[in-house]
Amino acid sequence: MSWLEWLVAVLVVAGSLFVLLGSVALVKLPDFYTRLHGPTKATTLGLGAIVIASMVYFNFIKEELSLQQLLIALFLFITAPITAHMLVKAALHLKLKTAEHTSGKQNADL
């Protein structure tokens, strides 16, 4: 294996571990507001790493020019915060319960 292939391997492994971490956070954390932290960030970062890996693989190992993945990454990095924002807005609107020891509930009008 060349060093480029090792680079792809490292990025792919790190990316899928971050994706898994996002899902673990989704299952493990106590309330909706904390659960939101996992998918919006860890998953986005994981997908970013996988996108970079596939760009390295196609452009340098297979040596065919392919930049479409860049669009996927760009699109996800723009949309992930917006999705999170809409979800929190909806949750605040429905007055979803927070974990008991959450501080500053009066700020959110809960």
């Binding site: 994706v19 909706f32 998918p39 979803l96």
Partner: peptide, 20 residues
């Protein structure tokens, strides 16, 4: 909304699977 969040994460994870 919890279910919605889980489905949204599922979308992103399936993209990761497709790329892999």
């Amino acid at each position: 909304i919890d279910r919605l969040l889980a489905l949204d994460t599922m979308y992103i994870n399936s993209i990761a699977l497709l790329l892999l």
